[in-house]
């Protein structure tokens, strides 16, 4: 890793970071966590049609999402 890629200053939202930091920075961890939460959320909603199949069949007749 080259020296120009290191940055140990605290990040501010709105500032463009110079490169990949070498230490854990809370704001960046939060940014990652929101994306990971999105991954959790999309799995939860993608399994939702399956568990409401009875209700969906009632509303749509016999067709349902495969």
């Amino acid at each position: 890793m080259s020296a120009s890629q290191t940055s140990n200053t605290a990040p501010l939202p709105g500032s463009a970071p110079a490169g990949q930091p070498q230490t854990i920075q809370p704001l960046y961890v939060l940014a990652w966590f929101l994306c990971a939460l999105f991954y959790f959320y999309q799995y939860a909603i993608r399994s939702a049609p399956g568990i409401m199949q009875d209700e969906l069949t009632q509303a749509w007749g016999n067709s349902h999402l495969g």
């Binding site: 990949q20 930091p21 960046y28 990652w32 990971a36 959790f40 959320y41 939860a44 399994s47």
Partner: peptide, 25 residues
Amino acid sequence: YLPARTLALFVGLTQCLGMAGAAFG
């Protein structure tokens, strides 16, 4: 945005949250 030394841990944690979403969401 996270240190190179923690990459595998955070990739693993990402997948962990996804699997948790699939299993318990």
